[in-house]
C-alpha cells in the first residue's frame, strides 16, 4: 500500500468533511442539512476506516463500522424523523446572515490552523495535516449552534461539533481508548435522543421549535 494513496484518501475524507460543513452553514433547508450531516458521518467513518486499514488495526476498522452506523445512519435518521414530525422545513432567519457566516468560517478556519500548529511540528504527516479540519469542524459546529434559531439546526450544530472532535481524535491518535470511545458515543446518542424528546415537547408547548421563543427565563 503506497503512502500517496493514504495521503489522498485522508485528504479526500477531510475535504468531504470540510465541504459538508460549509454546506451546512450555507444552506438553510433543514432536510438538506440532515443529508449533509449523513454524508459527513459517512466521510468520518471512511476516514477511520482508511486509518485502520493503513495501520492494519482491525479494531479501528470495527470502530469505523460503528461510526458509520451511528453517525452515518442512526443519528441523521433520528434527526430526520424529528424534523418530519414537527414539520420543520427551513431555518428562517439565522442570527448571522449567510454571507457573514461564510466569512466567519474563513476566520475560524484560520484559527483552527493556528491552533493545530503543534501537531504539524510534532509529527508531520498526512494525518497531522488534516487535524485543522477537525478543529474547524468543532468551531463550525459551535458557530451553527450559536447563530441558528431552529431547534433542529442546533442539533445539527451539536453533531458537527461532535464530528469535529471525533475527527481530531482519530487523526491524532487513532481514537481514544475503546471504553472511553464507547462511553462517549453512547453519551452523544443519549444527548441527541434527549434533545429530540425536548424538541417535540417544545413544539407541543410553544407551537414551534423556534428557540427565540425560549426567553421566559431571564433576569
Amino acid at each position: 500500500m503506497s503512502t500517496s494513496w493514504f495521503d489522498q484518501a485522508i485528504g479526500l475524507a477531510a475535504g468531504v468533511l470540510l465541504l459538508t460543513s460549509v454546506l451546512l452553514v450555507w444552506k438553510r433547508s433543514l432536510a438538506a442539512a440532515v443529508r449533509s450531516l449523513a454524508v459527513q458521518g459517512v466521510a468520518l467513518a471512511a476516514l477511520v476506516a482508511v486509518i485502520g486499514i493503513y495501520e492494519g488495526d482491525p479494531q479501528l476498522v470495527a470502530i469505523a463500522l460503528l461510526v458509520l452506523a451511528l453517525k452515518g445512519f442512526l443519528l441523521p435518521w433520528v434527526l430526520d424523523r424529528s424534523r418530519v414530525r414537527i414539520a420543520a422545513v427551513r431555518e428562517e432567519t439565522p442570527l448571522l446572515n449567510t454571507t457573514a457566516s461564510l466569512l466567519a468560517l474563513s476566520l475560524l478556519t484560520m484559527l483552527a490552523y493556528l491552533v493545530s500548529r503543534p501537531f504539524l511540528t510534532l509529527a508531520p504527516g498526512p494525518t497531522s495535516a488534516a487535524v485543522p479540519v477537525g478543529i474547524s469542524l468543532v468551531l463550525y459546529g459551535f458557530l451553527i449552534l450559536t447563530t441558528r434559531r431552529h431547534a433542529i439546526s442546533q442539533l445539527v450544530g451539536f453533531l458537527v461539533l461532535d464530528n469535529g472532535i471525533a475527527t481530531v481524535a482519530f487523526l491524532t491518535s487513532g481514537g481514544v481508548p475503546l471504553v472511553v470511545e464507547l462511553g462517549a458515543s453512547l453519551d452523544v446518542l443519549l444527548v441527541v435522543l434527549i434533545l429530540r424528546v425536548l424538541t417535540s415537547r417544545i413544539t407541543a408547548e410553544f407551537g414551534a421549535a423556534d428557540l427565540d421563543d425560549l426567553m421566559e427565563l431571564r433576569d
Binding site: R149, L211, D212
Partner: peptide, 29 residues
C-alpha cells in the same frame, strides 16, 4: 444593567461560551 447579561436568549449564552472558546484558543496558540 447586569440583568441584560441574562436575557434568556440561548444564542447569547452560546455566544458567551463561543467567544470564551475563541479567546482561549487565540491565547493558547
Amino acid at each position: 444593567l447586569a440583568r441584560r447579561l441574562q436575557n434568556g436568549s440561548i444564542h447569547r449564552y452560546l455566544g458567551y461560551s463561543f467567544v470564551a472558546l475563541l479567546a482561549v484558543l487565540v491565547v493558547v496558540s
